[in-house]
Computed example of a mutant assay.
Amino acid sequence: MRSEWRLLVFAGVFLVAYATPILFPHLPYDWKLTCWLAQLGCWLLFLAEYAVRFARAGDKKAFAKDNVLDLLVILLPLMMPLRMLQRRLGFQRKVLTFTATTTLVLGLAASLAVLRVERDAPGATILTFGDATWWAVTTMTTTGYGDTYPVTPDGRLIGAALMLGGVALLGVVTATLASWFGRRFDTGDDTEKLLREALKEIGELKEMLRSRG
């Protein structure tokens, strides 16, 4: 347990080191270099931790299959809180926390990443962290007001990934609600009716968000 909390602390260090040069672009070179070295150090730590566990695993194929999220943490250290949730809570109990944490992590990571690639681009509409956060929220909710949008290829790639992530989260919530209703009201025809009504309301909510754009 202690090692897990240490990794979470290092994930926080990685976040601070990654965000600082983006939020404060006029920092002296020495500070930027320090932040970059801190990111590299944290990343190497996560890689080493995974490599050691992989080497100790008896069935390496099963280990890789059962620890996909751990591998994702190496690619995106900000995902560390999701790894801890996965190990400490059952699916039904963690779904709301898992969804909220995923939304926060994806939104924050996308905001910082898009600001980094967009801020100095000709014709950019995402110039501040506030702009980037607003863009991330409207993109994840599929609202898309259009007042802020990426103009660079990298920014559009980030936007595409964020849209897919938002759709995936909506699917998780929908499937979880359907499963919950199925167990809560297991009464034959009534269950099917409740499920249809719940899915219909979710669809109407999604259409309403899109129409506001």
Rank of each mutant, 00 (worst) to 15 (best):
T174G: 05
L169K: 01
E197N: 00
R93F: 04
A100D: 04
D30C: 05
W5V: 07
L127A: 09
E49T: 12
P28Y: 04
C35W: 02
A55L: 10
L69N: 03
D66L: 08
E4Q: 07
T99V: 12
E118Q: 08
A121F: 05
A48E: 05
A121M: 06
L71I: 11
T141G: 08
K193I: 08
P153L: 01
L45D: 01
W180D: 04
L27I: 07
A110W: 03
P122T: 06
G144T: 05
Y29R: 14
D189H: 02
L199M: 08
R156C: 00
L7K: 11
T103D: 01
W135T: 02
R119I: 01
K60E: 09
P77C: 05
L82G: 09
R116E: 13
V117K: 07
A57P: 08
A132Q: 11
P122R: 05
R184F: 03
V16E: 05
C42Q: 06
G165L: 09
C35D: 10
M208T: 14
S211T: 14
R183D: 10
A113F: 07
W135P: 02
L157G: 03
L75R: 00
L71F: 15
K200L: 15
G123A: 07
D59P: 02
D186S: 09
R83Q: 14
D147F: 04
R210V: 13
A57I: 08
R116I: 00
T138V: 11
L177M: 08
L33C: 02
L106C: 14
R116Q: 13
T128Y: 08
T152P: 01
M208D: 13
G107M: 15
M1R: 15
L27T: 04
L75P: 00
D189E: 09
S179F: 10
P25N: 13
L162I: 09
L72A: 15
T133R: 10
V52L: 13
V172A: 01
C42S: 15
L85S: 06
A175C: 03
T191W: 07
E118Y: 04
